[in-house]
Structures are given as structure tokens and as C-alpha cells.
Nucleic acid binder design. Structure first.
Length: 407
RNA sequence: GGCGCCGUACCCAAGUGGCUAAGGGGGCGGUCUGCAAAACCGCUAUUCACCGGUUCGAAUCCGGUCGGCGCCUCCA
């Protein structure tokens, strides 16, 4: 159906994309934290996922995308407890702001965003089955995943007996806090705590009173929305170690099927060569871009101006250059005469499809347009027609005739 | 300490085996202009951190060295 090639984190190889159903694609993407607001690096990840979904639709697939809120994880409970809120109230606050900012950036979101707090039954069912199969065990009201009952544990990250033998051996010998059997075992269910009770993040269930851990919330939402497997799992690179590999372990122990055909991981946005962090004081939010006099399309383009699997270094100097580039392109598009009934320029479509089918190289597609239109003041009606068609994916030009966009 | 990514001109950056190593910024020179700005034109890496290897051929592959960054704490 398409010539789309994607780099798959599983195996770290480029593979031709083929969903299990040749017409429909199931995409599972990790949503924002519910305990603090997303910064522009978070939005970079959501943007490449947005481009993935839009491009799959361009290629003719029906796409069922889930973006999730893991709203009962430890930090959400802590934050809610600190502020005297329930986790539900905290989630609603975050959710509203996220939707508003996403809309401004042109990120399309599903109408409904699943929440871990609404998939407790699925989480319990998963844990029960893992216990039945000897893959998980209870201790003092909590439940843990037994990594040694899972021979392939760590296969996504590469944590296997070939690459990290000492780690497996160490897991075999140690115990941790007298609770876990092995150091590598991870929690599936937290027994109820005072903070959890206070923030209403505890549920009475067949396996006890408590809440699902981060490691079982995604599997629960996958089961709730897709069943046993999906076509693509997406997220930021930091989700690879100890989140997606745990998801793989849990889901595959549960279903005895492969979780996903493809795993995509986006690299981080860094600022002046350093990772954004609260302690470094270099965290940038969309409002900082707005305050500097830029518009959402500048940020949207900037965040896609490097391939999603390469680290993007934010500097104001480079931001200004990229803003000038996209404005130049937009003004050419804006000055172009439209005409009904013309067929789109094949040359433009070819550049776009070549780049996007090459592991979603949106930056290459746009730079290809810049090269194609170099020195021109306007496009032919056929070229404009093509630009409008591919902009359904890129989302950079639609507002070219309407500058009233603003965060 | 372990694992991984990266190192292309003054700056940013594309390019992952083969025509003369994209592009942008900056700088320099020019056209235009009362002067300037803007715009446009031209110039700005015999070479891709360094050393060695593979190959007819390497920025691209392999080994090593140096340097930067990231991960190894529920951080997209």
C-alpha cells in the first residue's frame, strides 16, 4: 500500500512499514505527564507522532491513535498531595491546558484520551493473569513482575545476556529491600498509602486496595483500547529504558503475543547543548516563544526542522533562522494564485513523499520545497495545489492567508 | 565504571561507499541607491576531530585515540 520505511527501535533496523491489517493502523503514543505542564521538548515528541498519524492517513490508512494519561503514577500522587488536590482534579487541570496548547500548535488529538484511573479493571486482570502464569508475585499488598520468569526481558532496550551479562547475573543474586526477589523486578501494583488515600488514588479490587503502577498502566490502556497488540508504539527516547521495555515484558507475558510491530522513539530537544531541566533553569515553554514575538507556526516548524531521531539543539539564533526560512516559504505560498480544477504538481508531491516515506523526514520535505522554489516569488496553480495537499500532513501553510494565529 | 549517540567552513547544518562535499547565517566584494537599509549577484572547506585499516574508490564501512553529550533514579 505504501513505501513507508521506518526505523524500528526493536532491532534498530529500518523496515518497510506493514500493519497487521493492511488498511488500518493502531498507534499507541505516550501522553504528557499529568503532574506538570509540557515544555517544548515534550511537544517535539507529540509533534512527530502527529506527523506520523497524518502521514499514515495521507497514505490512505485508517488510523486509530491512542494518547494516554498515566494519571496515577507516584509523582502525580505526590504533586496532588502537596497541593491538596485529588489526582482527578490535578489531571483535569493538566488535561485542559494540554488540549489548548496542542490546538494552538496544530497537534490533532483524539477526542477521548484514556486515563489509567479509568482502566483499573484491565490492570487488575493483567496482574491476575501474570500471577496465574507465575510471572508476577505479591508481597505485602504490592505486586511485582518477576524478570527471571521472562527469558526475553529487556529485548527492546537491548538488556540481554549478550549486551549486559553482568546485569542479568547481578539480578540473579541480589534481593532488594527484602521485598523483591531480584533487583530487576519492578512493581505492578502499589499497596495503598496515606497519600494515595488522601488524593483518591486508591481502589478496592480483587487483588487488594491500591493503585496500578506506571508499568501496568499502559498495558491496561492498550488492552482496553486495542486488545492484545498494536502496530506502532511511540514515545520519547527516555521512555525506552524502563518504560517501553517494561510494557513489552508485561504485555507479552500477558498475551503471549508480540506487543507491537514497530517501536518509534524520538530524540530529545536540548537547549544550548544541555538537556532541559528545572535545576539548570533552561526549560522552555510555548509561552517563551510567544513572548519572544513568534507565532505557533514558527514553533511547529522549528520542532520538526530536524529528523525526529536526531537530537535538536535549541538556540535562539537558530530559532530565528528557521523562523525566517518558514516565513519566506509561507510568503511565496501566500502570493501564489490559486485556480480551481488544476491537478497538483507531481514534482512537489514526489519530493514530499520521498522524504516522508524515508522515516518521516519532514524537515527534508520542507527543505526540499525551499530548494524547489528557490528564488521564486510565487508558485504555479499546480504547485500551490500540491502544497495545499501535503500541508494536510505538515500543517505549516494552512494559515498562510490568515496571520491571526497566536498562542 | 558500563552502555549509546555525536564531532562536516567563523556559526548552524544536509549528506552514511562513487559526478566538482547541499543550504542558511555571518563576513568580504559588487549592482542598485543622494547616503544608508532592503533586495539581487559573486566570493568564503582540494576537505569532513585525529591515527591506522578495508576498498578500484570513504565524510560515509572497520579498529584505535581524543573531545562533547546522553542514559544507567517513573525525565518527551
Amino acid at each position: 500500500m505504501s513505501n513507508l520505511t521506518l526505523r524500528n527501535t526493536m532491532g534498530n533496523r529500518r523496515e518497510v512499514f506493514r500493519p497487521s491489517d493492511h488498511r488500518n493502523v493502531r498507534v499507541f503514543t505516550c501522553g504528557p505527564s499529568t503532574y506538570r505542564r509540557p515544555h517544548i521538548g515534550n511537544y517535539r515528541t507529540f509533534l512527530y507522532e502527529d506527523l506520523l498519524v497524518r502521514h499514515l492517513e495521507y497514505l490512505g490508512y485508517g488510523v486509530h491513535r491512542v494518547i494516554n494519561f498515566t494519571d496515577v503514577e507516584d509523582k502525580a500522587v505526590d504533586e496532588a498531595a502537596d497541593r491538596g488536590l485529588t489526582v482527578k482534579e490535578l489531571t483535569e487541570e493538566t488535561h485542559g491546558r494540554f488540549r489548548a496548547e496542542a490546538r494552538t500548535l496544530g497537534l490533532r488529538l483524539p477526542d477521548r484520551i484514556p486515563q489509567a484511573s479509568r482502566s483499573i479493571d484491565e490492570a487488575v486482570a493483567i496482574i491476575e493473569r501474570l500471577v496465574e502464569r507465575g510471572r508476577a508475585y505479591a508481597f505485602d499488598g504490592s505486586y511485582f513482575f518477576d524478570v527471571f520468569a521472562c527469558p526475553e526481558f529487556g529485548k527492546l532496550y537491548g538488556l540481554d545476556s549478550v549486551r549486559m551479562p553482568e546485569r542479568r547475573v547481578r539480578f540473579a543474586r541480589d534481593t532488594y529491600e527484602g521485598r523483591r526477589w531480584n533487583l530487576g523486578d519492578f512493581v505492578l501494583w502499589h499497596a495503598e498509602s496515606d497519600d494515595a488515600r488522601r488524593t483518591e488514588a486508591a481502589w478496592e479490587t480483587r487483588i487488594g486496595v491500591g493503585r496500578p503502577s506506571w508499568n501496568v498502566q499502559d498495558p491496561a490502556m492498550i488492552v482496553q483500547n486495542f486488545g492484545d497488540s498494536v502496530d506502532i508504539v511511540c514515545g520519547g527516547i527516555d521512555n525506552l529504558y524502563r518504560h517501553h521495555d517494561y510494557n513489552v515484558a508485561v504485555m507479552e507475558a500477558y498475551s503471549e503475543k508480540e506487543l507491537a510491530g514497530f517501536y518509534l522513539h524520538g530524540e530529545h530537544l536540548v537547549v544550548n547543548g544541555r538537556k532541559m531541566s528545572k535545576s539548570a533553569g533552561n526549560v522552555l515553554y510555548p509561552e517563551h516563544i510567544q513572548e519572544a514575538g513568534y507565532y505557533p507556526h514558527h514553533l511547529r516548524w522549528y520542532l520538526m526542522s530536524a529528523h525526529y531521531r536526531t537530537r535538536l539543539n535549541f538556540t535562539w539564533e537558530r530559532f530565528a533562522e528557521e523562523a525566517a526560512l518558514i516565513d519566506g516559504l509561507r510568503s511565496v505560498v501566500e502570493n501564489s494564485p490559486s485556480a480551481a480544477g488544476v491537478s497538483p504538481s507531481q514534482e512537489v508531491l514526489t519530493v514530499f513523499e520521498r522524504e516522508m516515506n524515508d522515516d518521516l523526514h519532514a524537515a527534508g520535505a520542507v527543505r526540499g520545497l525551499v530548494e524547489l522554489f528557490d528564488g521564486r516569488s510565487q508558485l504555479s496553480p499546480e504547485e500551490l495545489q500540491a502544497v495545499e495537499r501535503i500541508d494536510v500532513v505538515l500543517g505549516l501553510f494552512r494559515d498562510a492567508r490568515n496571520e491571526s494565529v497566536g498562542p
